[in-house]
Simulated assay, not measured.
Amino acid sequence: MTSRAAVFAATFAVLFAAHQVADYWVQTDDQARNKGEPGSSGRRACAGHVASYTAVTAGALEIANAVLGLRVPVAGRVAVQAVSAATHYAADRREHGLMMQFARRCGKGAYLDNGGAAPMDQAWHIASLAVAAGVAAVSAQ
């Protein structure tokens, strides 16, 4: 039986690597430019990015689950992707999403406005991947 700590560590590593590929290599220029725009065009661009992002992270987790014997059941893998996708969308809608609103309420508005948006976005994503890896660890059999 694989320990929950090992499942967490392996899942986090796999999700982090997949995140880098999906966020920087797979995301289209159009999605990157428009995902934070208001209205349906911004929502569509962000949804398209999150869909391709989720496909990459899901594929990576499927491979890891099989090759590494993580024993994360289908329901657990689906829950991992739900956490990852929802939190990714919440950040990438920028001012129209939850992450920036939350950051402003926490007193980080000046930091956001002075070049801190990208690092805060990535910190949000990485923390969300840790939560998703925790879901995988708790669900592992």
Rank of each mutant, 00 (worst) to 15 (best):
M1C: 10
S3Y: 13
S3C: 11
R4N: 14
R4D: 09
R4F: 04
R4Y: 07
F8A: 01
F8M: 01
A9D: 03
A9S: 11
A10T: 13
T11D: 02
F12D: 04
F16E: 07
F16G: 04
A18V: 07
H19Q: 05
Q20N: 11
V21P: 04
V21A: 14
A22P: 09
Y24M: 07
Y24D: 07
Q27C: 08
Q31M: 07
A32L: 05
R33F: 10
N34I: 04
N34H: 13
G36L: 13
G36P: 11
S40K: 13
S41W: 08
G42K: 08
G42V: 10
R44G: 05
R44I: 14
A45V: 03
A45S: 14
A47Q: 12
V50I: 15
V50N: 07
A51Q: 09
S52K: 11
Y53F: 06
Y53W: 02
Y53G: 04
A55L: 14
A55F: 05
V56Y: 05
T57C: 11
T57G: 02
A58L: 11
A60Y: 01
L61P: 00
E62L: 13
E62C: 06
E62H: 05
N65R: 07
N65F: 01
V67C: 02
G69W: 02
G69L: 05
A75Y: 08
A75V: 15
G76V: 03
R77K: 03
R77T: 03
V78Q: 01
V80P: 00
Q81K: 00
S84L: 12
A86E: 11
T87G: 00
H88D: 05
Y89P: 02
Y89R: 14
Y89D: 10
Y89F: 14
A90I: 05
D92Q: 00
E95P: 08
H96F: 10
G97A: 06
L98M: 08
A103D: 06
A103N: 10
A103W: 02
R104P: 12
R104Q: 09
C106L: 15
G107L: 01
G109S: 11
A110S: 09
A110V: 11
D113S: 10
N114G: 09
D121S: 10
Q122Y: 13
W124M: 08
S128R: 08
A130H: 04
A132P: 12
A133P: 08
A133V: 15
A136E: 05
A136W: 13
V138T: 09
S139R: 11
